[in-house]
Design a protein around this nucleic acid. Structure first.
Lengths: 85, 85
DNA sequence: TAGATATTTAGGTAAATGTCTAAATATCTT
DNA sequence: AAGATATTTAGACATTTACCTAAATATCTA
């Protein structure tokens, strides 16, 4: 839970999630959308992976990243506990 | 939006929100629930205020804090955009 | 096996974060 | 007005974060 909020606390990572919502992408393809170095992109992907918000699958030289929205259900549930019954 | 995610990215602050969900509390009463100094509590409350997640109302010497859950609707909406239609 | 491409890991830096103590501000009470 | 209580602000410090470049690893292809 902590890791999910941490992962979501960055605009670049939130944008990455939106990209991956449209379709699965390789790390390189993701990097093309941002003005930061590939190692930085890799670092952001790592945080998203740690939060289980994305999953990477190697396909040859490439690693194809996909979003995993099931974790978001926990976040939604947590937020709902704050809304008055 | 950025500030909301930032505010939520801390366990102490998330617990504070849960406390305030139950009932409005003074800064001091909030502080009693944590093992950190009052200035630190004040700082956390400030971040929550910046995110508009809490509101403080002075009543004499006291400042009574309340949760504002309307901001959470934006977060919910944002998260929903990630869930596949 | 060599060279090319994709991605990550390592190491470094500047800025942000969470914490503390001490001091300042706001209000109440005597 | 002076002292007590509630809270915040200021300043310092250790840790974390996001970024970079350079080097390492993984895989493909000739």
């Amino acid at each position: 839970m902590n890791k999910v909020f941490k992962a979501l606390n960055d605009d670049t990572r939130r944008q990455m999630l939106h990209l991956l919502r449209e379709k699965d992408l390789t790390a390189g393809a993701i990097a093309e959308h941002f003005n930061i170095s590939k190692p930085s992109i890799s670092h952001h992907l790592d945080l998203l992976k740690q939060a289980d918000l994305v999953v990477g699958n190697r396909k040859g030289q490439f690693i194809i990243y996909s979003i995993n929205t099931t974790v978001l259900d926990e976040v939604l549930a947590w937020i709902m506990t704050l809304k008055k019954s």
